[in-house]
Nucleic acid binder design. Structure first.
Lengths: 190, 190
DNA sequence: TATATACTTGAGTGATCACTCAATAAAGCC
DNA sequence: GGCTTTATTGAGTGATCACTCAAGTATATA
């Protein structure tokens, strides 16, 4: 009896993620979303409930994709090589809506106001950090990295470096490729 | 014949800087500013012209203070020691409105929209980077750092590390003190 | 084909946005 | 004290914000 929606919900979430990623939370109006997603207000609210709810879905999608891409690469080339390759990957993709991390941008924009989305972004950042820590642990188990290092501390530093790199890569006056290779080179000294 | 304003313009700019720094551009409304600065709309616009004009003044003040504090410290303890101390300074100040860099936050928030304030923030970031480069050059001249390093490249990496650190320091799950000392420790290996 | 059940549409909601301006108050100079 | 000049005030501007909802439309089942 029912009628099927004419849109692909998953595709809309991915599209919304790209818009939010580029423009931020306050920088994206409902008008923007309605225009880009080709959705009238009624359909939008029927599908997602609110701007914040869609933003939360976009954040989740972003974080899931990030973790799964990294772990897939680690399974292919090994944990250390994956960590060394990641910096150049995150800055090179020309098709990406922004170089800076969406989780970091969301956290920075909304944390001061106590917005719930900042907490969600922070939790996803923590997941990512744990993902890095797991790779460092696997690299240690494989003998690629000295066992005397604290993998959680390495992960925190590595994530911080990546966040700095990705923000710097948005600038015209920074050579992001040099920066990425310097970060990767540090991993060889562990 | 004229009447003097009842407020201290410089103090108002500093106060506005703190609010913008914490809440961002879109996150700060005229109502917020009027309430915190204790200024009615008419006085506000007579004094500053627009929200963006005040934001630009706040950015300038922020950047000037940053450069002068760092160079003052370098004159006191030497360039390398200043660079090594800076990380713990930027995360430790409890009286600061935010740990993350205001220039970075502004740039990240407004760059995608092509807002002029993003360009200003980017220019100030470049000034800061040049300030770091000068200190690295002075450290090399003093024999504190190997002469084979490119000071501009060191500065770019150092600034990126600081931006990552300061963003990470806003999070509850990151040990910013460890992070800061790890960044400082890297400078000893140059 | 008839009907039930959703999806689609777009004008419209009150709230808030950055900002304006005419009226009023206060200070310096005569 | 009177006059000039500027600061202060706060109600009000149109625009945009996120969001609503009743009416219309399309589709899967019976």
């Amino acid at each position: 009896m029912p009628r099927k929606p004419s849109y692909d919900r998953d595709a809309l979430i991915a599209q919304a993620r790209d818009i939010f990623w580029r423009q931020g939370w306050a920088g994206t109006s409902l008008k923007d979303l309605e225009r880009e997603l080709n959705l009238k207000p009624g359909s939008f609210y029927a599908a997602f409930g609110s701007k914040d709810a869609l933003y939360a879905l976009a954040l989740e999608r972003y974080a899931q994709d990030g973790v799964s891409r990294l772990t897939a690469m680690a399974d292919e080339v090994g944990p250390l090589q994956a960590l060394k390759t990641q910096p150049q990957i995150v800055i090179s993709a020309k098709e990406m809506p922004a170089r800076a991390c969406m989780l970091a941008k969301t956290f920075a924009e909304l944390q001061a106001k106590g917005h719930g989305l900042a907490d969600k972004a922070g939790a996803h950042l923590e997941e990512m950090k744990e993902c890095f820590a797991t790779l460092f642990r696997r690299a240690q188990a494989a003998g690629e990295i000295g066992a005397h290092h604290d993998p959680d501390r390495l992960a925190a530093r590595y994530q911080s470096d990546l966040l700095g790199l990705r923000l710097s890569a948005e600038r015209d006056d920074v050579n992001a490729i040099e920066l990425a290779s310097d970060i990767a080179a540090d991993l060889d000294r562990l």
